[in-house]
Structure formats: C-alpha cells, structure tokens
Write a protein that binds this DNA or RNA. Structure first.
Length: 464
RNA sequence: GGCGGCAUAGCCAAGUGGCUAAGGCGGCGGUCUGCAAAACCGCUAUUCGCCGGUUCGACUCCGGCUGCCGCCUCCA
C-alpha cells in the first residue's frame, strides 16, 4: 500500500485510486519558452518515478502532462525571434521532450497543448459565468473569489484585499477587476498578440484554465493525483480548485503532490548568479545523463535538493561502482556453484518496496540496492555464487531499475585489434615479460581502455 | 506583514520516542597483484544547529533562539 503525502490533507494518506487498478495523474508541465533547467527536470523526474512505481505495482496509469504554449513569455519570445507562436513553441516543446528522453523519463500517456483545447476552455468559462462564479469586464473574464467560500483550502492562503493592495503586488490597473484577488480566466487581446474568438471578443486563455479544461477532458471531473512544483500551490493550484469545483460541483483532485525545488550550491538557482544549469550545458561539460538522473533523485522529493557539481561527480562514481557490480555478477558462468542468495535478495526487495511505498523514499530504496551489493560482494570476489544466485541478483536489479532507471548501462565491446593486444599481453605476462605487458597496457590506455587483471582473467573497461 | 519548510559526519543524504543513527562520495589502513588498476575487507557522527520543556528515556514531541530556503508576482 502506497502512502503518499497529500498537500490537501497535510499528512501521509494511504493511496487508493478511485477506479480499481487505474490511476489518473495530471502533472503541470512546462511553459515552452526556453530550455528546461535542472530544477524543472527534477520535478518531471519525480513524476516519472511516481508513475514507474505505480506501474510496477500493477496499476494502469493514465498520466497527462500539459504543455503550456501560450502565455506572456511564449508570446514575447516568439515576437523576439520573429516567428509565429506555434513555430516557436513547437521548437521548445521538442527540446523539452528530448531532455526527458535523455534523462530516461518515460513518455507520459498524453501531452496536451493549451492552444489545442481553446474550445474546452471557453466552455468552462461560459458555464462559470452562467453559474455565477465569473464575470466579464471589457472583454476579459474573471473568477469571482467571493462566490467560492472554500477558496484557500489547499494553500491556507486567503489573500486579504487590504494586504495585497499594501504590497502592491496585484496590478489593479492592468485589467478592471471587481476585487484585486479575482483571477483571470480569459484575457482580452492586446494589439499584436495572438488571439482566439470568444463570446467576449478576441482574447486568449488565462494560465489556470488550461489545466482545468484538459484534466477534465482526458481524466474526468475528479483525478486521483495532481502534481506540480511547490511554487504552484498558490495561486495556480488554488485557482484550479476554485474554477474546477465551481464548474463541476465535484472534488477536483484527491491527492495533491508537490515536489520541492532544488537549489544549486546552497543557493537559489538564478541566471544572475551564474548557477543556472540546463541539461545540455551539463552534458557539454561531459557529465553522464544517468549521473544527472541519479543526483536529481538522491534526495527525497519533498526536500530541497542541493545540486552541486561535486555531487554530480559523486553520483558518477556511485554509478560506476554499481554498473561494475552488475557486470561482474552477469559474468558468473552457468556452471558456477555456491550461494543462491535467496535471503539476501528477499531482504533487499522487501526494503526496496517498503521504502518506495513510504511516500516514494527513493534514497531509501537506493540504499536497499547498495546494501545488497555489500552483501553480495564478498561472495562475488571469492567466486562463491551459483548461477541461480546470479540470476536472482540480476532479476532484482532489473526489477528495481524499472523504477530507478539508473542501473541499465552500455557495456560496449572492443574490436579485434584490442582483443589481439589483450591476448598478446596475457602471453607476455605468462612469459613474465613484464616490460612488454606494461607497454601494451599503456597502449590500450591511450586508446581509452583500462585493463584490470583479476583471478578470472583480465577485464577491460572504458576510461572516464 | 501572512503562510510553509529545512538544519544529521569532510561532502551528498535516509531515518527513529528506547534495540548497532541507512546508503553514497571522499579519506585512512589492509587483502589481492609481477607492478598497477579495479574490486573486496576494516576504520571514518558516543552524536543529530543552540537553549529550555514534556518523558523513566528525545536526535526523534513541545516552546524559544539562530541560520538557510520557498510561496504570497502567469516560477517546477
């Protein structure tokens, strides 16, 4: 049984889907106006882990992630580049999906775009007006917070008009609202902006309405889980609840799940501080995408994660050891005799499952894998593991990796020339011709191949 | 000003009202090796920001303090 921290109840709740065996998940996706940064990617990676865990538990998962392709930033960006909004957002949506693939994030069930669901949004807005929850002013439509008494139930934030005015953070002059706290459902077009026809004249959707419309369109009026970074709790998710529940009269989301942000070198990531990383930049610096995945999942999702370059090196090292372990286990021959490792693997599996079921404790689950490695290693070093034990360990690693996605790796192969050099070196060693053996080793190293002599013969691996 | 979170070894990071405070990286020592490398083994927090309180017992609960961070601006 999965226990999941629910922002809606502020505690860990047992998870039970509405429909037996099927889990519906809506994740707030990116606004496609730039390359995703690693902070964005952490959130999306968490969604991936959650979905993978549910699938491994036997659920059918319908996970939808929206792509916001119309807002101030996308409009500004497309105008700056002198291309159409559609052309501009298509490009960044592609970059986004590529980055997900690079990080081994499994594709969502659907990636709906806001601009492809204008009609559904207009329907919601129209009905909200009919039901008395929204009003039109000068071509824009606003949600009337005073008509929805539950406003603030998710975040605990109910803005006082007095306060917001004092802080001057709500721009009252930009649009005419009855109350500064009311939020926009439909924005009247400004000159030169992309717009769609509506009963209130040309305009474009407000930010929050797309999630309501698309969540209901693909997942129904009530969804099991709704994900998004903590910054979205207020106002985005609060507004989604208000407009959705006012529209349907039903509970919108059963479990609200909010991954924390990451910080970089102990500080908030920002372009001015120069600690703003994208996946591409890190790859250009030579880091392995799997190491980045590992680092991004190395802290519990509800804790801020401190992303550092040193941490990336640490992840790279940890993975190298894990991969080497998996390779050495796989090399155990079929006729090997010894331990079958049934108890060790069972213990690891039990811990792995328990940790993930406890609010997706990925660091704990990874520890289970490393603990098994420590149990198995001494036997492995002495060649005391049976073929059955080998298969059991490999099966566990493969099973664990359906959630973690960090163990599978390319072993690669070497060409005939290198094979020949290795054979020649073995002969030299047999002849105790150490200088020739070392010469060959240096030669191979120059080609990026590290030779390791083991009791079972020489092994090779690629140098970092 | 309002709401919320976090402070655990050199670094990253789990965790619990009392049984040895996970795991990773790094470091040190050792085994193996022709020498290496890798691997393996051992050691590496008598202590969990500080001060009080509750309790038979707190790192774990409560209060205060200090520090850091987030939201209250269409930021994941």
């Amino acid at each position: 049984m999965l226990k999941l921290y629910n922002t809606g109840t502020r505690r860990k709740d047992d998870f039970q889907p509405l429909e037996e065996g099927v889990v519906s998940i809506y994740s707030c996706g990116p606004t496609v106006y730039d390359f995703p940064h690693i902070g964005n990617l952490r959130t999306f990676l968490f969604a991936d882990i959650l979905v993978r865990h549910l699938k491994r538990r036997g659920y059918t998962v319908h996970n939808v992630m929206n792509i916001t392709d119309v807002d101030d930033k996308t409009i500004r960006g497309s105008q700056a580049e002198g291309v159409s909004l559609g052309e501009y957002t298509a490009k960044y949506a592609d970059y986004f999906l590529q980055d997900l693939e690079t990080l081994r994030i499994q594709p969502a069930w659907k990636y709906p775009r806001a601009t492809e669901h204008i009609d559904q949004m207009l329907d919601v807005v129209k009905q909200l007006i009919e039901k008395g929850y929204a009003y039109e002013t000068e071509g824009s439509v606003y949600f009337d917070i005073s008509a929805y008494p539950d406003y603030g139930k998710l975040s605990g934030i109910v803005p006082e008009e007095q306060e917001t005015r004092e802080f001057g953070r709500l721009d009252r002059d930009e649009y005419e609202r009855d109350d500064a706290r009311d939020f926009v459902l439909w924005k009247a077009a400004k000159p030169g902006e992309p717009s769609w026809e509506s009963p209130w004249g040309p305009g474009r959707p407000g930010w929050h309405i797309e999630c309501t419309a698309m969540s209901i369109e693909y997942l129904g009026e009530t969804v099991d889980m709704h994900l998004g970074g903590v910054d979205l709790i207020f106002p985005h998710h609060e507004n989604e609840i208000a407009q959705s529940e006012a529209y349907t009269g039903r509970e919108f989301v059963r479990y609200w799940v909010h991954p924390e942000h990451l910080i970089v070198e102990g500080e908030k990531m920002s372009k001015s501080k120069g600690n703003f990383y994208t996946l591409r930049e890190l790859l250009d610096r030579g880091y392995d995408p799997v190491a980045i995945r590992h680092l991004l999942m190395s802290a519990h999702y509800r804790r801020q994660l401190n992303f550092t370059l040193e941490g990336l090196d640490q992840s790279q090292q940890a993975l190298a050891r894990l991969w080497d372990f998996a390779d050495r286990v796989a090399e155990i021959p079929d006729d090997a005799e010894g331990a079958d490792l049934a108890d060790e693997v069972a213990a690891a599996l039990a811990k792995f499952d328990a940790e993930l079921d406890d609010d997706l404790n990925v660091p704990g689950a990874m520890a289970a894998v490393f603990e098994l490695m420590r149990d198995v290693n001494p036997l492995l070093a002495e060649g005391k593991i049976s073929a059955a034990g080998r298969d059991r360990v490999l099966a566990f690693l493969a099973d664990a990796d359906t959630v973690l996605g960090i163990i599978e790796h390319e072993k690669g192969s070497v060409d005939a020339e290198i094979e020949a050099l290795m054979a020649e070196r073995e002969q030299a060693r047999a002849d105790k011709n150490w200088s020739r053996a070392d010469e060959i080793r240096d030669e191979l190293l120059a080609q990026g191949i590290v030779i390791e002599d083991t009791p079972q013969g020489p092994r090779w691996r690629r140098a970092e």
